[in-house]
Amino acid sequence: MDEKKYYLTKDGLEKLKKEYADLKNIKLAKTEGEVPKIWHSEDLNPEYLSFQEDLDFLNSRIAELEYILKNTEIIKVPSKDKKNTVGLGATVTLEEAGGRINEFTLVGSLEANPSLGKISNESPVGKFLLGHKLNDEVVITSPIQIIYRIKKIRYNLT
């Protein structure tokens, strides 16, 4: 099976690296402390269960982050001849009939936040936009149809 690629901005990568380091420290602190007893009278001690569950999720998130960090590809500004094409990291200005303007930045799934105008390349809208060029007409067919013209493509990556 192909390994999944995770597309991140430099900023996004730094954040994940920090989360990874923080979780490793938390795990260390947790396992160095006193482990709750497994039995509480005749019942399984809920504190032990909770400790074990926390540890399981810590381990699973650490493993997930290790996998992501191993399979990360940094989003870069494309070469000059590709700057007029919508790719990851592009901020796309779209014009609709009537002159209404909408704007999105295409990011990888891990950094998507549509409320901030950052949509995932794996979302339906993201998929519709990818690969289109300046002045192209893009038809987004959710159950309702929206037609945009690509007015501007910018790459302002940090």
Binding site: P114, I119, N121, S123, P124, V125, P143, I144
Partner: peptide, 26 residues
Amino acid sequence: SVGALWEWAFEVCDDPLCIQLMDEMK
């Protein structure tokens, strides 16, 4: 009209399970 809600879902959802659920709703 639920047009705006469809648009919203199309912008926000990228998880395969969520997209599957969205398709089923459709």
